[in-house]
Structures are given as structure tokens and as C-alpha cells.
Design a binder for these strands. Structure first.
Lengths: 124, 124
DNA sequence: TGTCGAGTTCGATGTTTGTCGAAACCAAGA
DNA sequence: TCTTGGTTTCGACAAACATCGAACTCGACA
């Protein structure tokens, strides 16, 4: 908390365990907890779209003021979904002046992608 | 339903739309529904472990009789979770004699992996 | 035909989640 | 300092979910 006060993110999810493709080796129970939390965060249509809007945004970040009007739900709800993505370690938030900007955290995304990597059917 | 009766799977989820990395282009709303359903299926610790056990199983398939005793929950619950994975299009089930075997459906997994692929920070 | 074992479906229950409106917070200007 | 606009937090509520035990289905085997 000794930062200058604009850091809104919580978890140091670069410390998530595990990662070889799940087709290669079984996921241990401890890792499953953290990893499933990330998948769950992507398991909502609105959050998945938010995530993709943030990940594909110009300049590597997206303003909440641009995200909110893209959906039919209230700003409260968008804020809630962004919090879930934040707590899952998938995005980072920073306040600048009146606006809050979200940017992706590539680390965890990469881990999830690796986990889902499908190995070739073992040419035996 | 005119099949010989051993096919327990439901969806033809090879027909899921979309797929370039979400860091490259925004996910359209229609695709988000189907894709988020798959992520949600992986968003539970037990299901994620089940999925990894099935995906990494010897011979490309796992018997329910081997999956169930690996967890502290009832067989009913495992059956429920397997159904969720099935309906999400992530696994396939087949009954042989007295036992039921589950195998991964690599198609959807590959799509999810691609979606999460992180592009290099655009060397401009 | 009757029984047994493996899995699934059904029905019920407590918990989690998505959504909202109201209130609070925070930075910028007047 | 007061107001205003953008965002998050709080409190509430209905819908969805994880879990269980009981009942059912499906093959195998007497």
C-alpha cells in the first residue's frame, strides 16, 4: 500500500503454480484452485467480451468509460465484472485523472493458453 | 438419436464460431456465449482436474471408475461435473460393457488455447 | 428371469453469482 | 469550497450452481 495510490489491483498472480499442458500431465489439486478461478472469471459472456476488449485495445489499455457503454447492463454491473477479472489476476487497473484504465496481464493468460495446448496424438 | 445407443454426448461443438486470439480482435457477442460456456465448465476445481485427468490419460481415455475415487465427493457429483464438461463440448463419453469411458475433444480446447494466445507487444 | 455393480437422473437444499439502485468516493473545475 | 462526472462499494434479491441421497437404467452373469 505504500504506492502512490493509483494501484487498484490485488493479487500477485504471477506466482500461480503449475503449467505444462493438461494433456501432458495431470493438474495437482492445489494448482487447480487458482487456475479454475481464472477460468471461472472468463466463464461469463460479458467478462469474456470485456477481457477481449481490454486485450485488443489500442495502446494496450482500455478506459472504463469506453467499456461500459458497449453493454446493455448498468455501470455498477460492469464495475463488478471488472473487479472479478482483476481479482482473478487477468487485468490491472490504474486511475489517471478522472478515468480508470484497464490493461491485460499477459502472464496468467499465457499460462492458461499453455495449459490448454493440445499435444499431437503421440505418433506411436 | 438413431445411433446404436452408446453415444452419450450432446453438442456438435466443432461448430463453435470465432477464434483469432482475443488480444488481436474483439470477441463478438454471439461467439462469447458459446465460448464462455466452455470457460465456465473449466471454472471449477473438480472439473478442471477431471478434464486434465481425461486429457492426460493413458490410451486417450479415462474410465469413470478411475476418476471417481480420486475425489472426496460423491459419485453423483462427479457424474454431474462430467455432464457439464460433456455439454460444454470438451469431452466425449462412450459406454463399453459395464463401464463408461471419457475422452477429450481436442477441437474446442484448441480454440480456447488460440483465443488466449498472447501476441508480442507489437514491435512498433 | 433375477440379481448385482457401475453410472446417470431426479428432487431437495444451502451457497454463490449476476444484477440493480442508492450511497460513497475521488479528481477536476467553477 | 461546492458542484459535477466517472467509478466503486454496499445491500438486497432472484437465478444459477454444487452437492447429496434415493430412485432409476443398463449390461453382465447366474
Amino acid at each position: 500500500m505504500s504506492k502512490s495510490g493509483t494501484q487498484l489491483t490485488v493479487i500477485d498472480t504471477d506466482a500461480v503454480p503449475c503449467c505444462p499442458p493438461m494433456a501432458t500431465s495431470r493438474i495437482p489439486a492445489e494448482s487447480a484452485a487458482a487456475l479454475s478461478r481464472a477460468f471461472k472469471a472468463l466463464g461469463d459472456p460479458i467478462r469474456l467480451q470485456l477481457m477481449s476488449m481490454i486485450a485488443s485495445a489500442e495502446g494496450g489499455e482500455a478506459c472504463v468509460c469506453d467499456l461500459t457503454p458497449a453493454f446493455e447492463v448498468s455501470g455498477t454491473t460492469i464495475s463488478h465484472h471488472l473487479k472479478v477479472l482483476r481479482e482473478a489476476g487477468l487485468v490491472d487497473a490504474e486511475r489517471r485523472a478522472s478515468w480508470v484504465y484497464y490493461r491485460p496481464r499477459p502472464g496468467l493468460m499465457r499460462q492458461l493458453a499453455t495449459l490448454l495446448t493440445v499435444t499431437e496424438p503421440a505418433a506411436t
